[in-house]
């Protein structure tokens, strides 16, 4: 198992390298110029050229790439073109924000959506099933900016239970800090909860129709025991995949939610960096998100083995 993990991790190196090359070229192929996002309209061509020179944007692209790669190997993401700060300094304070948001949204998904899916499957075609299906349909269909704005209107503006937007660091108290995450986590979680509910329901229905469940029923086991001990464990495998991969996309895909609730996470930083073509920052965030995906994928595979004794990874 250990060797398997090491091998998998080593496999990620070429993946990340190819991504780095592709990414590096792609951000530069897209039209737009970081310098033009900085200067005023009356800047002379000489000034613009001077700034390009100063920022090494005139160096040949392979020189720029090798410099970046060399720095990267030493764990240095370089400096932001416009913010004039090391990229690491910009990203680090934002990781906890996005991570908290993603974990809370995932927690919400797991706590609400899996039981909802199980209940729906157990009561297939009955009221509970229809409620779960309709609710998840709404969750999938309604765009998150709308969900966010509506939650804000009701719970922040009218009821004043939560702040309308913004982030308070943990140093200002756990509850103060968490309060700001409740509405964004629900907004972000709503979409994925909906997907997971439907996924859990389908997976459960499939398992429930299998022979061993029928056998268990015939043996006189209790309904609850069959449902939660025998069926759910097997139904969980596809669900774990979805939840795991969702966590990855939550980390990279919380752009809209972060923007609506004004959370200073990686999503807002990525968005503003793209707008001003801040190449080093874009590259660093995309690489980071990719790395997270890879690691989560690995964890998902390991969890498979724990859930299903038939899954074993060869130590070769």
């Amino acid at each position: 198992m250990f060797r398997y993990i090491v091998k998998r991790l080593l496999h990620t190196i070429p993946t990340l390298f190819l991504l780095a090359v592709g990414l590096f070229i792609l951000v530069r192929v897209v039209p737009g110029d970081p310098v033009l996002a900085m200067v005023g309209e009356n800047a002379t061509p000489e000034q613009i050229e001077g700034l390009r020179e100063q920022l090494h944007l005139n160096d040949p692209i392979y020189t720029q790439f090798l410099t970046w790669l060399g720095d990267l190997a030493r764990g240095d993401f370089g400096n932001s073109v416009q913010l004039r700060r090391p990229v690491t300094d910009l990203i680090m304070p934002r990781v906890p924000v996005t991570l908290t948001l993603a974990l809370l949204a995932t927690l919400l998904t797991v706590v609400l959506a899996i039981p909802a899916g199980v209940v729906a499957a157990a009561h297939k075609g009955k009221a509970a099933d229809r409620v779960a299906l309709s609710a998840s349909l709404v969750g999938v269909s309604v765009p998150s900016f709308f969900v966010g704005m509506m939650l804000m209107l009701v719970f922040a503006v009218n009821l004043r239970w939560f702040p309308t937007s913004g982030y308070r660091p943990l140093s200002e108290g756990l509850w103060t800090s968490l309060q700001g995450f409740v509405l964004p986590a629900i907004t972000l979680g709503a979409l994925y909860a909906a997907i997971v509910t439907r996924m859990s329901r389908t997976s459960m229905l499939e398992v429930l129709s299998q022979d061993y469940v029928v056998t268990a029923q015939a043996s006189g086991f209790g309904r609850r025991r069959i449902l939660y001990r025998h069926a759910l464990k097997n139904a969980l495998i596809p669900i774990v995949t979805v939840v795991g991969l969702n966590l990855g996309s939550l980390l990279g895909g919380s752009l809209v939610t972060e923007r609506v609730f004004n959370l200073p996470g990686l999503g807002t930083l990525l968005l503003s960096s793209i707008e001003r073509r801040d190449y080093p920052v874009i590259q660093a965030i995309v690489l980071l998100v990719t790395l997270t995906y890879v690691v989560i994928n690995l964890i998902v595979d390991i969890v498979y083995a724990m859930l299903d004794p038939r899954v074993r990874y060869a130590d070769k």
Binding site: M149, M152, L153, A156, V157, R160, P163, T164, S165, G166, V260, F261, N262
Partner: peptide, 9 residues
Amino acid sequence: GAAAAGLET
């Protein structure tokens, strides 16, 4: 929108 809501609250 978030700004207006914040001003209101």
